[in-house]
Design a protein around this nucleic acid. Structure first.
Length: 478
RNA sequence: GGGGUAGUAGGGUAGCCUGGUCCAUCCUAGAGCGUUUGGGACGCUUUGACGGCGGUUCGAAUCCGCCCUACCCCA
């Protein structure tokens, strides 16, 4: 090897790999001169667009998209006591209009409850208005004090998808929580990202919620990343913001609410979980380009090959694939590396030899080569792309399964966590034991009521105190 | 929350302690020309920088102050 200069850091050095791939694959430029704010490159933005379109498609089944303002007046923001406590250290305030101090400070939304609910109070009139299910995709601002990290811990979350629903009863809201979880699972399944769903402990729930269900993914280094949350708000906010409806008997009642959201952490997980030492690997469903055609042009056959490549491009585009014909004046090998870094799932190599045989060489991003007939190329490409999807899903599931470890004691748990695993333990749900577990292992209780095909629903005794416990996830979280 | 290290061209570095020719070097960077082309081609020409603001000085990448940003480690 005299030339490995183009290589990425190995993925096992995850932090370095992650930082490097973001700019090498042109996802984000981290050089914007404000802490915690980053710039999307067009290529990364296109990935974001496809990912969010999938989420929109899912939500649009029975939600409606809307848009609320970025600025929230101080008195609205300050209405819900618990909510304030949870966010007050992280809020950016607009205090001036030009040089004039504002009479009423305006908060840049760290989340939108207090922007949305005053309007819900106006909109919700009768039981016939319920359930109300709206969502918006917006940027939010949080003055993070911990170390910021692109796509993972940001001061401007550029794409927070948040849904806010109102229901007549607590039970209906509760059912909506379950519906949201199903929806998120379907979303992440489409991205081939395995998820762990659990109920956050009380001290870690959303400020102002009855309870919080969270969706976590296991990153390559074994740390967990929260990639979605669903909150049952009960009537905490509706009492504060006076969201009432008239029921069938003519009585005024408070609405029961839920809210749930996903941020660009979904894209951090997508990149991290599927990528390898060569670069990104994008599942076909969200790949900016699903197929790249690399013509192998030599001497006199140049025009023949280019003509055939253009025809192939037209044919595949007409069939609905996102295809690019790479006709740049570069050596074919350089193009291979280029597109591998950018995660294009399928490459078609077309040269004179293939052309004579009526074939084209298909190479998938995981390294499998097959020669396919030009006459059946549309069906074959479709088949190969779904093979890639299946392979990515299986691989990611294997990773998740192999990183979950049952731990019967605190010491075993610590060892497993240090090995980069996520622990499944029994816990009695007392704060005192949680503190012991967290202190002993330098990790966090992620949650109970684990809904995962990877975690058995066993009964056992708490590893902190020996009393009856419930299966609980413990991990080192981002 | 606490601590540490760093910022020089597209990327990577040297120079800084001890201020001094308009300032070096490497590359997969950019621009241009030519020869090439089944896994990162080669040759030649060329462009371009001292994180920001202020101070000291005849003179600052270098010394002083403040700020910004990044990365790493430990609660």
């Amino acid at each position: 090897m005299d030339d490995d200069a183009g290589a990425l850091p190995l993925k096992e050095d995850f932090s370095a790999w992650y930082n490097e791939i973001l700019w090498r694959a042109e996802i984000m430029d981290v050089r914007y001169p404000v802490k915690g704010l980053y710039v999307w490159y067009p290529y990364g933005f296109a990935i974001r667009k496809f990912v969010y379109q999938r989420l929109r498609d899912l939500l649009d089944r029975d939600h409606q998209e809307t848009l609320f303002p970025l600025l929230i007046p101080e008195q609205e923001f300050m209405k819900e006591a618990e909510h304030i406590k949870g966010f007050e250290d992280e809020v950016y305030w607009v205090t001036h209009g030009g040089t004039t101090p504002l009479d009423v400070k305006l908060a840049l939304r760290p989340t939108s409850e207090t922007a949305i609910y005053p309007m819900y109070a106006l909109w919700v009139r009768s039981h016939a208005d319920l359930p109300m299910k709206y969502y918006q995709i917006v940027n939010t601002f949080r003055y993070e004090t911990k170390q910021t990290r692109p796509l993972i811990r940001l001061r401007e979350i550029t794409s927070f998808k948040e849904a806010h629903t109102v229901h007549a009863t607590w039970e209906e809201a509760s059912e909506q929580v379950e519906e949201a979880i199903r929806l998120y699972r379907e979303f992440y399944n489409g991205l081939c990202i395995p998820t762990l769903v659990s109920k956050r402990p009380d001290w870690d729930k959303f400020p102002g919620a009855d309870y919080t269900i969270a969706v976590d993914a296991i990153m390559p280094n074994g740390k967990t990343l929260q990639i979605g949350t669903v909150h049952h708000l009960a009537d905490h906010f509706s009492r504060t913001f006076n969201i009432t409806y008239e029921d069938k008997n003519g009585e005024q009642k408070f609405g029961q609410q839920t809210c749930y959201g996903i941020s660009e952490r979904s894209i951090a997980a997508l990149i991290s979980i599927h990528g390898d030492d060569k670069g990104l690997i994008l599942p076909p469903s969200v790949a900016t380009l699903q197929v790249v055609i690399v013509p192998i042009t030599i001497g006199k056959r140049h025009e023949d090959v280019m003509t055939a490549a253009r025809k192939l491009h037209t044919e595949l585009t007409a069939a609905g694939f996102r295809v690019k014909l790479d006709s740049r004046d570069m050596r074919p090998g350089a193009k291979y590396y280029w597109w591998e870094l950018r995660g294009v799932p399928l490459r078609l190599e077309l040269g004179p030899r293939d052309l004579d045989a009526g074939k084209v060489m298909a190479v998938n991003r995981i390294g499998r080569k097959t020669s396919i007939d030009l006459s059946t190329v549309t069906e074959d490409v479709s088949r190969l792309l779904s093979e890639i999807t299946d392979a990515l899903r299986t691989r990611a599931e294997d990773h998740t399964r192999s990183h979950l470890c049952c731990a019967p004691s605190l010491d075993v748990l610590k060892v497993k966590l240090d090995e980069g695993k996520v622990g499944v333990v029994q816990w009695c749900q007392e704060k005192r034991c949680a503190d012991r577990i967290e202190e002993h292992t330098n990790a966090s209780i992620l949650g109970t009521d684990v809904r995962s095909q990877y975690v058995p629903e066993t009964e056992g005794i708490c590893i902190g105190c020996g009393n009856p416990g419930k299966p609980t996830l413990v991990g080192r979280a981002y």
